[in-house]
Design a protein around this nucleic acid. Structure first.
Lengths: 189, 189
DNA sequence: ATAATATTAGAACACTTATTCTATAACTAC
DNA sequence: GTAGTTATAGAATAAGTGTTCTAATATTAT
């Protein structure tokens, strides 16, 4: 039948994701993406349609990545322990690389980026919010937090915290500062 | 001598600032800036050198704007009252427009933006940090916060909070959510 | 009015952009 | 092998980019 592909879609997507993540949507050219992925220009357009399509694919790819990596502690839903584990993980990774969060970066650049991206980022924030809420429910049952605490508000607060850390980590790469903020913020629970 | 200018530098800068603020550095073209400012292309390059120079000028212009508008309550340094006033102001403005913070946006896009921008944003965050610290010192003296609280950590925490709010406000424009987060976050002090 | 100076309008330039096209090469089922 | 299919390499395209240049225009001191 046909000639087989010489590339791995997953691998191509991974490389494209890092490039977009580092430089943003506008500042990344198809030229660069072709070079960095090693993929042929024609195959690129065959697979993803156009730059926007490729970008959306990297966003989805990143969603899966986040879900696996950072969602894990929260999905265990073991109360405050899970939340602390989550922020330890996030804080560590943020400081280590200094790219921030691909979602946050894209959300910020979003005016120049398709509406579809906005929607996906929105779904992500809601997912994160709900995961926090579940952990807090458990924490309440365990008596780790007072029974009269408003879980919705606290979840929004934790989403906000994550975003703040994301931004700070891109500028101030001192691990200590990030850790300090996490410490202070979690005292609040 | 010479023919007088038909434009007001301040006014030009203001319009350029809003354009960059809305769309980001990369997504804004000189073509658009020329149209939006109504300024002649040649005069543009005469005044600011090039796109990067114009962008830096808008960043400086924004710094002054922020200093006047949002710095005011913090400079009064009346303890917790000032901090609450600050966040009420910030929360309100963030929700009203939905552009986020020009500094934050630029910091995030920064990989594709000159290093000079990075430095300015850095200065801004430090300034903000120090203003918070001063208010907290006063609060401590007034007995509004416990004497053993670490002011440096708390200040970093408040900077982080501001950034988080900034990001959230660009996506979730519900005023209530923003207000909820502020409420929860300030309980921590 | 004239000379000197600066601003203006917008054409022109060189380069980059995303995207499409074309011809060639590689593979498989028959 | 051959036919059919698909990936490949890279040239070609058309529009957009930041920037420079040129000529005309407006103003003021003399």
């Amino acid at each position: 039948m046909a000639r087989p592909r010489e590339f791995d879609r997953k691998e191509v997507l991974k490389k494209a994701t890092f490039t977009f993540w580092n430089k943003g949507y506008e500042a990344t050219s198809m030229e660069e993406l072709v070079t960095v992925t090693g993929l042929n220009r024609g195959s690129m357009y065959n697979l993803f349609g156009n730059k926007e399509g490729l970008f959306l694919a990297t966003i989805d790819n990143y969603f899966d990545f986040i879900h696996e990596t950072f969602g894990a502690p929260l999905r265990k839903a073991e109360g405050l322990k899970s939340i602390k584990e989550y922020f330890a993980l996030v804080g560590g990774k943020l400081c280590k690389y200094g790219r921030g969060c691909f979602f946050t970066n894209s959300a910020i650049e979003t005016k120049s980026v398709p509406e579809a991206v906005n929607q996906r980022v929105h779904v992500y924030f809601r997912t994160q919010h709900d995961l926090f809420a579940k952990c807090l429910e458990v924490a309440k049952k365990k008596g780790e937090i007072p029974a009269d605490r408003d879980i919705q508000k606290l979840s929004s607060y934790l989403v906000c915290l994550t975003q703040g850390l994301t931004v700070m980590s891109k500028l101030n790469k001192q691990t200590k500062t990030i850790q300090d903020v996490i410490d202070v913020a979690l005292e609040q629970l």
